[in-house]
Design a protein around this nucleic acid. Sequence first.
DNA 1: GGGACGATTGAA
DNA 2: TCAATCGTCCCA
Length: 174
Amino acid sequence: MDATRLTPDFYLRDVLLVAPELVGKRICRIYEDGTSSSHIVTEVEAYKGMNDLACHASKGRTPRNDAMFQQGGILYIYFVYGMHWMLNVVASVENEPEAVLIRGVAGCSGPGRVSRLLKIDRSFYAENLGSSQRIWIEDSGLFPSILTAPRIGVNYAGSYWSSRPWRFYTNDYR
DNA sequence: GGGACGATTGAA
DNA sequence: TCAATCGTCCCA
């Protein structure tokens, strides 16, 4: 079923390589009732290391962001605005805190909506995409055209970091 | 213990 | 334009 599941080495690279390559990949999910779904990733954002003031890791390692400091290939899940779960894929090697926020899949735009669609919650914190039986990412064989833009909702990080073109998306699957 | 704030969303 | 809503983190 998951013969094309991405292997750990895919994630153990710089987040600025991993993030754009995740666009067009297929995110697969098996739910508790046995049903399943898969969706093509259409929009992501890269958060890169302790110097990136928009990245949670810039505040130092805490229980909340610990997953981002771990080896790539796991999920970093957090809760914001009192109501939304954010789904992130951890990239790079241990102690290089980098992650990719999944902002949209085909037919569903917005990070909070994606998590609601995929029924993501705290229980997915640090879930391993290489071995999980309920969520993983597959190669789709697709090669969408990728566009870039500044990241959304990070003005608090200052003009330099908020203007990095680290949002990657495609319009190929609308 | 108290308070500020957020990688958002949906409605006014 | 603005309220909803609460976990996390900093300061006292």
